[in-house]
Simulated scan of single mutants.
Amino acid sequence: MTARVLYLFGSAAPPVFEAGKVIQEAQARGWDVCPGLTPTAAKWLGPQLHELEALSGHPVRSEYKMPGEPDVWPPADAILLAPATFNTVNAWALGLTSSFVVGVVAEGIGKRIPTVTMPCVNAAYVQHPAFDRSVETLRGAGVTVLYGEGGFAPNQPGERRPEGFPWHLALDAVSTIVSPSP
């Protein structure tokens, strides 16, 4: 039996540097992982992109394919977008699909692909009124948003938590909404 397919997307926040570790953890949980990044995250991880491709067995995507080109990934059984920045969350909620990652997750709502996201935003950003509206919009569309209690809690600007980004919560949530094949 083949593994279920997880699209693992990340935007440009420091936890994206842990993508390799997260791919391995998802694979250990039975997922075939297809990694995608926002354009800025792809620049940040430039030196690691070949390693992520070798690890996942799939190309790392950060741009739309050209019309008529075949898809290079199998269809997704689930999507995990983490870390999701302030910009990514707001663009997604508004349906602004100028980036590949936001386009796929926006379309995923209509395709009813089980989707989990965990924002990575600081306490200053979440004071902007658009953020709470965006989180509620995404939740209303059926996206599991791990923000607040039981998810990501904002820290002060420039502050890093010694315990790190709670990747285990994100992967647990994906496993809860779609169990990978054994």
Score class of each variant (00 low, 15 high):
G46V: 11
V101M: 02
S99R: 11
P166Y: 01
T176I: 10
T85R: 07
Q24N: 14
F17Q: 15
H50N: 14
V33E: 04
G108Y: 01
E69W: 08
E51H: 15
T97L: 03
A19T: 15
T115A: 06
K21I: 10
G20Q: 03
V5E: 00
C34R: 07
V145F: 05
M1I: 13
P129H: 02
F152P: 01
T2L: 13
L80K: 04
Y64V: 07
V22F: 05
F165I: 11
A130Y: 10
Y125M: 15
G46I: 12
P75N: 04
A173D: 11
A124T: 09
P119M: 01
R160L: 12
S134L: 11
G95Q: 07
L169G: 07
V5D: 05
P83M: 08
R4Q: 13
V22P: 01
V101L: 12
Y7W: 10
Q156A: 15
D172K: 03
D71E: 15
E51L: 14
G110C: 03
A54T: 12
H58E: 09
G148T: 03
T88P: 04
P166K: 01
S11R: 04
T144P: 07
R133P: 10
V145P: 05
P70I: 10
P157Q: 06
M1S: 13
V60W: 12
S56I: 02
N87W: 09
P129Y: 00
G95C: 08
T88M: 04
G103A: 09
A141C: 11
E69S: 15
A13L: 04
G30A: 08
F131H: 07
F165H: 07
T176H: 13
N155W: 09
G148Q: 01
A3V: 05
Y7G: 07
V5F: 01
A26M: 12
Q24H: 14
T38G: 09
F17D: 14
S11M: 06
W73D: 04
H50E: 15
F100T: 05
P75Y: 08
A41I: 00
R161W: 08
Q48Y: 13
S99K: 10
G151T: 02
A78G: 04
F131T: 00
A170H: 05
V126H: 03
V174E: 04
A76T: 10
V89I: 13
A3Y: 05
L80N: 03
E18V: 05
P74G: 07
P157R: 00
A54H: 11
R133Y: 09
P70F: 05
H58P: 11
A91P: 04
S181M: 11
P35L: 02
P119H: 01
M66S: 15
I23H: 02
Y125Q: 15
L49E: 09
T137A: 12
F17N: 15
E53R: 13
D71T: 14
T144W: 02
P59M: 09
D77F: 00
G142V: 08
E163N: 04
F86I: 06
L94E: 14
A106C: 12
S134P: 11
P83R: 10
Y64H: 10
L169E: 08
V121H: 02
V178L: 04
H58L: 12
V101H: 01
P114M: 08
